[in-house]
């Protein structure tokens, strides 16, 4: 049943994109989270990953969201001596999240999600047309 398969594949794409969206939301929400103490590190940005895998049951290549990996780039630092978690020189370590990058990533996820919804819709219409042949 190819049309049902294609709907399930599109659903796997939607699932992967929403999981990616969740990682991006975590990043954006924690964009300004400082560490609890001056010695420890603040929130580290997560990078969402995607892998394709062959589903034997569907006989199709579906997509899965992989484990998010940590971004190992340097933390931002801001001069804020009044902050309780500032170091001896008065700098506060902030997460390595760039909101501009996150917003672009979010748009991309949104677009891919919409593409999957369109495929799902097209497959559904085709399936319905086939069933409609019974009415003729």
């Amino acid at each position: 049943m190819d049309l049902a398969t294609s709907m399930l594949v599109a659903a796997s794409g939607m699932r992967a994109q929403s999981s990616r969206m969740r990682t991006i939301a975590e990043n954006i929400a924690n964009a300004n989270s400082t560490a609890p103490t001056a010695q420890s590190d603040p929130y580290r940005r997560k990078i969402p990953t995607m892998t394709s895998s062959f589903d034997r049951e569907l006989n199709a290549t579906v997509v899965e969201a992989g484990r998010p990996v940590q971004d190992s780039s340097d933390f931002r630092s801001q001069y804020d001596p009044g902050n309780p978690v500032a170091d001896a020189k008065g700098y506060v370590k902030l997460p390595n999240v760039n909101s501009l990058v996150e917003i672009m990533d979010m748009r991309e996820a949104q677009q891919s999600y919409e593409a999957n919804v369109n495929v799902l819709d097209a497959s559904k219409t085709m399936l319905v047309r086939t069933i409609d042949l019974l009415n003729k």
Binding site: T5, A60, S112
Partner: peptide, 16 residues
């Protein structure tokens, strides 16, 4: 419908 199935796999894996 076989083609539609392949195309949906392409779109689902558009970011892989």
């Amino acid at each position: 419908s076989a083609r539609q199935s392949l195309l949906s796999q392409n779109v689902a894996n558009a970011d892989t």
